[in-house]
Amino acid sequence: MKSLSIRNLSKTYFDPYAGKHVTAVQDVSIEVPEGEFVSIVGPSGCGKTTILNMVAGFLPVSGGEIVVDGRAVSGPGPDRGVVFQSHALFPWKTVLENVAFGPKMRGVGPKEREAIARDYLALAGLSHAADRYPNELSGGMQQRVGVVRALANEPAVLLMDEPFASVDAQTRMTLQEELTRIWQERRPTIIFITHDVPEAVFLANRVVVLSKGRVLEEVEIDLPRPRSWETLIEDERFKTLSSRVLQLVRSA
């Protein structure tokens, strides 16, 4: 896993319906050193998903640059794994085939990529679901597979776009704890987009608060690991940090 720099990134696009140019992101710089977990929070429309889509390469940048592992990037690529809010699993592929898709694209042989996929499924406790279709899984399991699929491609950085927004509260907490566990085990570099402040604080080393397409402030999260909701829910430091971030978001 490698580092990611976002330098003076901006995005203006031509809105064909409005007939004019719109600025969505303006001069945003974010440094994510190797192995760090950064959350980006902000109200809807603040440009956080636009930034992620540019980093992922789904949208062309209007200005600035994105550097992964020392190289400027343009267009989507396997060095940046993406976890989508809508899980985006291929409905016509089994769980195993979904996870093996990335290695297959890299030209890994059938035997080997199945081994890789099974290995990663085991990491998330999903071995039993390998031969099922995404449609046959619960929402929480679908999201787990989405995370595993991105990880199995061994990306330099992992980009997560509100991945837990559409699962129930109980499952979300479990998924968050699992994600911190996996992060501690493998130390991937992660950018995590969310509008849920406690989630951002719980997961990250650093929270970037965004407002109207600009970085409002960055907050260091110096909470000890391993983290679990059981201990943090009563933790004073967690409460202070959360309310500080919340105030920033609400002022945004």
Partner: peptide, 11 residues
């Protein structure tokens, strides 16, 4: 998102 997922996985 499905098309994006495929791109980002290297398709």
């Amino acid at each position: 998102a499905l098309r994006n997922a495929a791109w980002s996985l290297g398709a």
